[in-house]
């Protein structure tokens, strides 16, 4: 089963091309890293997958549906690259609202909030406004919002941005935990070492096109690191 599919997707912002005929398939239950230099179109691709941006040409499918269909986004967790939390809203209320919108109710919602807040390390800050959190804690809260309700598709854009080494290690555990539950994870990152540790497959973008994709063991040649494979792909 295919979790995410982009077929011939092009997108321009004014005169600036962001994606140029991108084809990408993410199979269900896999952890896929989306790599590429700055401006390669990674964030645009993720936003098209989520229905936040419309493709100029081509089409996107999320579990076989148009991403604009709300049902396509049921059970999806998302952590954006630039996390914008409403500063005055208390952490618990933010989690409560997101959990309710994700379809959780009553005791199940309360239990999910407690468990996710505990897991991501924001349990002590539930009463505080989101705007009072440090960058690292805000990123942990972003993870909590994404992980709330145990989504079966997790889309993470630069997830370790702003996290300290302990946070980076925790993020790796959260991704592995999601994978162990059978969730699909699509993660965009510049941190090749993290991708190497977490992901089973990678897709490399350059100038809005897919230049390499596949399982790590096939993309990375013997004696090479992922960095070597990445450089080879984007400079080819």
């Amino acid at each position: 089963m295919i979790a995410v599919e982009l077929a011939g997707v092009s997108k321009r912002y004014g005169a600036q091309p962001a994606l140029d005929g991108l084809d990408l398939v993410v199979p269900s239950g896999r952890v896929v890293g989306l790599l590429g230099p700055n401006g390669a179109g990674k964030s645009t691709a993720l936003r098209i997958v989520l229905g936040l941006v419309r493709p100029g040409r081509g089409h996107a499918r999320l579990r076989g549906r148009d991403p604009l269909d709300p049902e396509a986004r049921r059970g999806v967790g998302y952590l954006p690259e630039r996390l914008a939390l409403p500063p005055e809203v208390a952490v618990r209320r933010l989690l409560h609202l997101h959990g309710a919108l994700a379809g959780l109710r009553g005791a199940a919602l309360d239990e999910a909030i407690e468990r996710t807040a505990e897991e991501t390390g924001v349990i002590e800050r539930l009463r505080e406004p989101a705007g009072s959190l440090s960058k690292g804690l805000a990123q942990r809260l972003g993870f909590a919002l994404a992980l709330l309700g145990e989504p079966d598709l997790l889309i993470l854009d630069e997830p370790t941005s702003g996290l300290d080494p302990l946070g980076v290690r925790a993020a790796r555990d959260w991704i592995r935990g999601a994978r162990a539950r059978g969730a699909t994870v699509l993660v965009s990152s510049h941190s090749l070492s993290e991708v190497e540790r977490c992901c089973e497959e990678v897709a490399i973008l350059r100038d809005g096109r897919l230049v390499a994709a596949g399982p790590l063991e096939t993309l990375v040649r013997p004696g090479e690191s992922l960095e070597d494979a990445f450089v080879r792909a984007v400079e080819a």
């Binding site: 989520l50 229905g51 999806v76 919108l101």
Partner: peptide, 18 residues
Amino acid sequence: RPLETGSASLWLVRPIRR
């Protein structure tokens, strides 16, 4: 305001219609 700050995106990835 939510469009400028980007917080709208967080809400709109939930299963709700635009």
